[in-house]
Computed example of a mutant assay.
Amino acid sequence: MGDQQPVSTGERAGVELARALEEAARGLVERGADEDVEHTLQLIVRGAIHTIPHVEQAGVSLVERGGIVTARAPSNDVVRELDELQTQLGEGPCLDSIWYEQRTVIEDITQVRARWPRWAVEAERRGIGSLMAFQLFTDKGSAGALNLYASETGVFDEATTDTGSLFATQAALVLHGARRVHGMAGALASRDVIGQAKGILIERMGVGPERAFAILVESSQQTNIKLVDVATWLVGEAQKPGRRGGHGR
Rank of each mutant, 00 (worst) to 15 (best):
W233C: 02
Q86D: 14
E210Y: 08
I52S: 06
E203S: 09
T40H: 13
R12D: 07
A231S: 04
G195H: 07
G141C: 07
Q88H: 11
A185T: 04
P209K: 07
I68M: 01
A168F: 12
G177S: 15
G186E: 09
G67E: 09
E35S: 12
V15R: 13
E218L: 14
A71P: 03
S130P: 10
G245C: 06
D162L: 07
L146Y: 00
T9H: 08
L89Y: 07
A231H: 00
E210G: 02
R12F: 13
L41T: 14
L227K: 06
G183S: 10
R115N: 01
T70Q: 11
M184Y: 10
Q102S: 02
S75Y: 04
G67P: 04
R180L: 15
P209E: 11
T51Q: 03
Y100H: 06
E152D: 13
R243K: 09
A120G: 09
V29Y: 00
L148Y: 03
E107V: 03
R244I: 08
W99N: 03
R204D: 13
V45E: 07
G246S: 09
R72K: 15
E210W: 05
I109Q: 12
D192G: 00
W99R: 08
R103P: 00
C94P: 06
M205L: 15
R118Q: 15
R211K: 10
I215N: 06
V230M: 07
V15Q: 10
G59Q: 07
P93A: 06
S8V: 11
N76E: 11
V155M: 06
D162A: 05
R19E: 15
V193G: 11
A178T: 10
R244E: 07
I128H: 00
Q86I: 08
D77G: 08
V45K: 04
G129T: 10
S220C: 05
